[in-house]
Design a protein around this nucleic acid. Structure first.
Length: 427
RNA sequence: GGAGAGAUGGCCGAGUGGUCGAAGGCACUCCCCUGCUAAGGGAGCAUGCGGUCAAAAACUGCAUCGAGGGUUCGAAUCCCUCUCUCUCCGCCA
């Protein structure tokens, strides 16, 4: 959520910057509503002030044993007016609120302007894609060849876009999460957390998934209670650790990590990546979240991105870092780096991590603040990044470390987590 | 699932219809005092939104005592519904 003051005072500038990310802001509607709001709010508050004063007078009159009938009649009249005014005000305010909640964040000045992923800028490339003396297979052929990946069974259990892993490949999946969590907790200073996978609408509103992106979520209806939603990423519960709280400045930055499953309905993505593990309704991810002082959020973004990169480096996976252009960023972000891992099976770099600074966008929605030097509450900045997507890391390992006979060499760094298994091969 | 108790500011905690945005304490900030990382004295100290303003400061209005509704001229206080927390019983991994 943007600061309303910004919209009131620098509307033209904001509108132009939003255009860069294809958001068309209805200036006319906002201006009219805002003008009404000001007028109605002032009138309402004036009436409330009058009512309060009258009530006080009535109290005093009664205390002195005087007759307060005429004062009470006056108060009745005011209350009737107030009723109408309050209804008008709350209608206007909820309309403004709705607008405000749907506006995306403003891109940082260092972000390239562009329409689509084509205008993203490559920042650096790390590692050389291997030369193969044979035609590399994709992860589906490899996994099914090993008899350890079963999409057929998954579709019987749940339908499309689910998967079943078996045997050492399932273990590899588990090993990856342990490995990633160990790096981030032991080397990068993150606190590990275990969090709910079902969260409330309020929580999702805090991080920006609601109200605008409800279609992407799995919703769990309950008979006698509000619905809950399956988390689309651990960013949601982790970032909301500071929902509605004031943190001591000395406690910043907060660095949090968690391994969770993520559930995405991916409405609108049908037809893309239908084959394999790349795009699933359920996948695991190790998430990194930082809650920081506003002065340090861009340094923190660089660090956080490096933290995610470390994982790929240790797994000996070639990748590149992309700076997303204005048209390709998520709604809450001011600046985003995507890590794209090399997939020989697709002969392409594919996203495996996305690291974003959201500045105060989420903090304002969550009312997440810290007490600054002047002892005043001030909004924190929030960052999040995948550190990294487990399913896609598994894909990358299969494809990059495959051998001609269809076996997979486990990278050195992962071997301690595999109980002595160095190679995955068909038994 | 059953029975009971509770929810007040950063924290603890008083407050059963008016002058209560809320006593007192802790923490925090500033000042004074003090022969030394302690003690004492004084002052300040909730959040959100609005208005005056280019903005800040300052001043001022409104709202907020778990949430939502109701009674009333007036609600932290009375009534209803809900949520959450705690204790005991049952059930369960």
């Amino acid at each position: 959520m943007l600061d309303v003051q910004l919209l009131r005072n620098e509307l033209d500038d904001v509108v132009n910057r939003l255009k860069q990310r294809h958001y068309v802001f209805d200036v006319e509607r906002f201006s009219v509503l805002e003008k009404e709001r000001k007028q109605v709010q002032m009138a309402t508050q004036e009436l409330q002030a009058q009512r309060n004063a009258l009530s006080k007078d009535i109290g005093q009159a009664k205390a002195k044993g005087l007759d307060a009938t005429s004062l009470m009649e006056k108060s009745h009249t005011i209350n009737a007016e107030l009723e109408t005014a309050q209804q008008a005000l709350s209608s206007i305010q909820s309309q403004l609120e709705e607008i405000l909640l749907s506006i995306p964040n403003l891109p940082h000045s260092s972000v390239p302007v562009g329409d689509s992923a084509d205008q993203n800028v490559e920042v650096r490339r790390v590692g050389q894609p291997r030369e193969y003396s044979f035609t590399p297979k994709d992860h589906v052929d490899l996994g099914e060849g090993l008899m350890m990946m079963d999409f057929n069974r998954a579709s019987i259990l749940s339908g499309a876009r689910f998967s079943v892993l078996k045997g050492p490949l399932a273990r590899l999946h588990r090993a990856l999460t342990q490995f990633m969590l160990d790096i981030h907790t032991q080397e990068h200073g993150y606190q590990e957390a275990y969090v709910p996978y079902l969260v409330s609408a309020t929580t999702l509103k805090g991080t920006g998934q609601l109200p605008k992106f409800e279609a992407d979520l799995f919703k769990v209806l309950r008979e006698d209670a509000d619905p809950l939603y399956l988390i689309p990423t651990a960013e949601v519960p982790l970032t909301n650790f500071v929902q509605d709280t004031i943190v001591e400045e000395a406690h910043l930055p907060l660095r949090l990590t968690a391994h969770t499953p993520c559930f995405r309905s991916e409405a609108g993505s049908y037809g893309r990546d239908v084959r394999g593990l790349i795009r699933q309704h359920q996948f695991d991810k190790v998430e990194l979240v930082q809650i920081v002082h506003p002065d340090t959020s861009y340094t923190a973004l660089e660090e956080l991105t490096r933290h995610a990169e470390t994982v790929l480096q240790r797994l000996e996976l070639p990748y590149r870092v992309m700076l997303l252009c204005t048209g390709d960023m998520g709604a809450g972000a001011t600046k985003t780096y995507d890590l794209e891992v090399w997939l020989p099976g697709q002969n392409a770099y594919r996203e495996i991590s996305s690291c974003s600074n959201c500045e105060a966008y989420q903090a304002r929605r969550m009312q997440a603040r810290f007490r600054n030097q002047k002892n005043k509450p001030e909004l924190v900045h929030t960052l999040n990044g995948s550190g990294v997507a487990v399913g896609r890391a598994l894909v990358a390992i299969l494809e990059n470390h495959q051998n001609e006979d269809g076996s997979i060499t486990i990278p050195q760094a992962l071997q301690p987590y595999m109980g002595g298994i160095k190679v995955l091969k068909r038994s």
